[in-house]
Design a protein around this nucleic acid. Sequence first.
DNA 1: ATCTATTTCGGAAACGTTTACGGCAGGGCT
DNA 2: AGCCCTGCCGTAAACGTTTCCGAAATAGAT
Lengths: 346, 346
Amino acid sequence: MTGIRQLASRLDISIGTVSRALNDRPGVNAETRARVLQMADEIGYFANASGRSLRRGSTGAIGVVIETGSPSALGGDNFFFALLDAMQEVLTEQDYDLVLLPTRHAADPLDSFRRMIRRGMVDAIVLTATRRNDPRIELLLGSKVPFLTLGRSETPGDYSWIDLDFERVARTSVDRLVALGHRRIAVVTPTGDANLAFLYADAAVRALAEHGIDGPPDLILRAEPSEGGGVMVARDLLTRPERPTAIMCCSEPMTTGLYSEFLQAGLRIGRDMSVIGFRDNPHCRYLSPAPTCFALALDELGQHVANAIASIAAKDRTAAPRIRTIWPMEFRETASIGPPRSPDRS
Amino acid sequence: MTGIRQLASRLDISIGTVSRALNDRPGVNAETRARVLQMADEIGYFANASGRSLRRGSTGAIGVVIETGSPSALGGDNFFFALLDAMQEVLTEQDYDLVLLPTRHAADPLDSFRRMIRRGMVDAIVLTATRRNDPRIELLLGSKVPFLTLGRSETPGDYSWIDLDFERVARTSVDRLVALGHRRIAVVTPTGDANLAFLYADAAVRALAEHGIDGPPDLILRAEPSEGGGVMVARDLLTRPERPTAIMCCSEPMTTGLYSEFLQAGLRIGRDMSVIGFRDNPHCRYLSPAPTCFALALDELGQHVANAIASIAAKDRTAAPRIRTIWPMEFRETASIGPPRSPDRS
DNA sequence: ATCTATTTCGGAAACGTTTACGGCAGGGCT
DNA sequence: AGCCCTGCCGTAAACGTTTCCGAAATAGAT
């Protein structure tokens, strides 16, 4: 056992001085501090996390809540791992530890969640994959744990969030497809309560309406955000007497499924069927033709999130600003879209 | 603040009794226990994690170490999220918390890693993505933290591991391709130190040798385990005067890249080029034709891992058995392989 | 009625750390 | 020389919980 007492007794010094030396507190001789640091390094001493956080009242850890066991709308690719990588770069600089807190989608998420925040394992929480009405946010608002959500929600309250610009993505997609001559455009969003689905669909419908396209909503579709969901949607559309000439969707696995089924049916993507996906992710990039989609500065987003949650977690909670960021995405057009093949009759 | 003292004073009872009641310790009246539990529920009391683990000497948390910022050979977060889901099902039953500890691939992994285990944030560690020679394992062996690695390693020592059956996967792939008539078979593994790359390649080479195929090793290839890596490999092979008639690879993103480039070059997969991938993952399933690959009972694997790490983390470390599991995978043949098109001359 | 065993509970110590407080030098000032 | 101030350090009290130990009370047995 290498506690602070062993370290102190080895140096013939009091534990108070040792602690001060290690924590860069004033009131300790420079030479003594050097001796302490060297000995600590030598015997491999690290302050015990429980003791420290018990005394300090904070753990120095930031928890990112992720949900396992359900297909994630934002693509089952390395989205989270890449984001975490950038976050950790910033957070370790600020002496925060980063831990992921997986919660099971199938089980009641609330009770495991409640435990997490009540026990005080982390100083602050980043909540991901927000739902349209998210009881987890209510729980957090009712607790003392500062938090930040990655994604907006309809759940009211005074909290900070960071989200992608789904509205502009949807609007840009519609504008471009209409400019190419499309009139029958299918919009497909993930099932479930993920708020992004509503933001995307609503914005798309508004944009379509502005172009005078507000036909029956049978082209606003929902499916499971997985490859299988994309296949189902494609099959559905292929059986329709007047099938759409373009389709836009905000889930990458779904885009993959759409491709698979359309190609199977002999359609040429970009000519017989225009496809706009969502995020520019590596998996999609090697579909052919690569889907038109929207690029995202993932590193910078991660850094922004990290800085935001660090400032929120800071003890000095007086001047903690409310953060509300809508992160831009850049349009990347490819050969996956083109003018409609046969003139549309609608 | 809702500490155990508030709870006790509300009930006019000592904190000792409250603690005994909450922890199902003997020596407390059934009626008193019921009152305590009800009041705890009422005011939303949860024992503070720092205080508890300080006194108990264990945190009740199991850490899964993952590496961010590098393409993962086993394909993205789908694999891990699914595994984690199954693990948590088992671990919550045993009153363990599950936390993910992301470490940055780019940064020096050792020091952040050292902090993690020395601070005693977790009772036990699951180490993923083991490398052939893995300094992290040495660090863990030198510490008091019980651990389990997901993946074998050449690093010697007396530790438990669970791994997939890469040898049988490689052997089965070779056997089947040879049975179909292939003689020029490319074997491609990820670059980097991931141990699975060596296991797979070595087993493939042995199997080829047993079939009398031990030509020059210019068909044993390595590439980054990403779509881009697959593309590079495919381009390389396409320029060769005598290109192979089959290719087997143990990384799903790489398989996607191979498909993309081969299709681009006008090859028909399963006829002009036979392809065997590795894991049966959703992303690959919607390539066409779906790659021949190997299925894996991910749920059961997760449960097995959870049970293993729980038994390893148990306080009673006397009878902790050493666990060494090689997890089977089931061959799934599809139209992505077939007899070689033009008779091979070698 | 006394003694013992059992049940139930309160008091207090302990876990490892940080930090407020006070003390002891030594130096600079009047 | 006396005084105050500063720099350094040791002591001890917290943080919230679990658990050991002993006390009180009740029941049972002789």
